[in-house]
Nucleic acid binder design. Sequence first.
DNA 1: TTGAAATATTGAACAATGTTCATTTATTTT
DNA 2: AAAATAAATGAACATTGTTCAATATTTCAA
Lengths: 205, 205
Amino acid sequence: MSTAERKTKEKEELRALILKGAKKLFIERGIEQTTIRNIADEINYSVGTVYVYFKDKNSILHELHTLGFKQLGGEMRVLFSVSEPMERLAAIGRVYIRFAVDNPDMYDLMFNMKAPMEYLHRIEKEEWNEGKATFNVLKTTVEECIRQGYFIGHQPEPLSFAIWGGVHGMCSLYIRGRIRAVNLGDPEIVLIAAHEEFVKLLNKQ
Amino acid sequence: MSTAERKTKEKEELRALILKGAKKLFIERGIEQTTIRNIADEINYSVGTVYVYFKDKNSILHELHTLGFKQLGGEMRVLFSVSEPMERLAAIGRVYIRFAVDNPDMYDLMFNMKAPMEYLHRIEKEEWNEGKATFNVLKTTVEECIRQGYFIGHQPEPLSFAIWGGVHGMCSLYIRGRIRAVNLGDPEIVLIAAHEEFVKLLNKQ
DNA sequence: TTGAAATATTGAACAATGTTCATTTATTTT
DNA sequence: AAAATAAATGAACATTGTTCAATATTTCAA
């Protein structure tokens, strides 16, 4: 291995180390409470080094958001074994909700925070590939349902968006503390019960 | 009017002036870009004065959030003239979405931001009256629908929550730039079209 | 009217944050 | 070993929210 190759590898490793440290802190104490100094401390490097490997905080957050989508994508992939599309549609929602409950800060970063979108804007990229890919999993399933005779009179794309919005909204209200605040009982149970009602609505002919 | 009375009134006026300035800036340049110093400048008082009238930034944001709910409540109240509950249900959604599109930062503050919830936590108040009242408008309508024979087999409270979540989710994805990012066309049009699909789902027997 | 007490307002100062960049340290090449 | 290149550093800056001793203003009894 040439020196140049080794150097490239070392750089990638340090980059990955920074991300690993960032993710650790950010699961431990939340994204808002994680500073660049914390991250630098965590991995025993200086603040300056972090800025050699990432242009700014948004870059780090965007990269973590991408890792989150990889994880969610993996959890969704399993569902392609569910052959009945209506059943799969419900299962996608359950996986999505489970992900939100188990990884609230990551979910928040992926679907609520401005950082990843601001990053895309800065690098002048209009495409949000991570989001589009996830949306397509849903849309493909909805289209299959339509082919089987469900959702008659609906337009697939807006309908898919409405379904995404539906599940996302419940998760967001959960994560942003609105379920707790309206006092309907244990938030996680309310969330899951609401999703069941939502699935009932979807299943009506 | 006694001196004490006048003083009380003056205090209330300055308090209101601070809120007015805060709201102005915050509509003009967004909530994240509005600092306490900006607010103080805007109304020609010092930073310190703002802190005499409000304990911290969360208090200001909470009070603005309450004003937002007053406005939304007013816009909803008109809908009690719609006698058909299923029709009213759709109309509530449209009003809610219109509010979100016309007042994105206010909507964000009311339903997404942590500040108002943190304020409640600080003053050790468990009740989120603003949210509960708005939720009850929805729940009452859903219950009426059920009494008319709609939503058979559904539980009213989780169903109401699912409907809230549904509309909120679409608004949130809109406000947090996720609709634009998935590139389905003009975001506002997508939002409205998705709500129409949502209403179709609700209207199924 | 006056002056002491009460009230209201001020803005400098603090800690925490993201960010920059001249300097230092380490590594590679000659 | 020296020179050239690359990597890492951390002090310094601007901007936040926040505090609080100091200053200015207002009140009201004498």
